[in-house]
Amino acid sequence: MKRREFIQQTTAATALVGLGGFGLQSFSSAPKKITILHTNDVHSHIDPFGPEDGRNPNQGGIARRATLIEGIRAENPNTLLLDAGDIFQGTPYFNYYGGELEFKLMSMLKYDAATIGNHDFDNGLEGLYAQLPHAKFDFVSANYDFSNTIMDTHAKPYKTFVKNGIKIGVFGLGIELAGLVDKNMYKETVYLNPVEIAQDMSRVLKEYEKCDLIICLSHLGYNYRNNEDKPSDLSLAKLTKDIDLFIGGHTHTFLPQPTIVKNSVDQNVLVNQVGCYGINLGKIDFYFGNNKNTSAEGVSILV
């Protein structure tokens, strides 16, 4: 069904490559910068930790995060703000308001998309669905099939954004729910193999959507050292191609800086995760170019 469309697009792409070859001099426009900001596992931590806190004194706080993000956006309006799930659960804000305040505040901070973590099912599918009107951002999840649930059509597999002419594709992945979440909470949600879905999504976003930048927003977890078969961001990064960035969650991993991984075709992928509770904000800047900058030594990654 999609075959003709696909061929047409392939032809168009080839033509573009041809043109590019002729008009090299015309690529002298200024480089473009896309900033990706991200959080994960904020777990209803709206207020900062107090000065007395044993572990994270004076850390976090959404009102501070708002200031930080505002400053970054003022510097570069071509910014996306993403969350990798487990927005819910962890402070009485969730117990009292069921996630309403979390979604309202994220909307005020202008989040662009989020994926769904296991704790986002803590009030059941109905509990998540009931809070959706408060979220002015979209949920992306490619490997949860919600067809037979109340969440049907309320989480898209992926979403694309165009910022300053750069097309960005963001797809979501969630962790296996059986054994982690009470079946009564996720009901008929079907978990699909994230490896196959990620391979499929990257192809769709690259070939069909023609994205310049592809991001996987994942709640799979950073890495499972004692269970290498369990899908994780590191294992998926190695098994896939055409994905530029994995933004992860679930394992509450505080990475000092993003990890660089070689994908299935030996290209570099960034994998990042910022712990939990809004203590850190991930910031990845992609510079698009201007042939003068694309020198023979390739892409420079500074982390």
Partner: peptide
Amino acid sequence: CKTPSDVYKIEGKNVNVN
């Protein structure tokens, strides 16, 4: 092709909120 869609540099860091 060196179209504007080529990434030539990536900078990544995690910023502490405090």
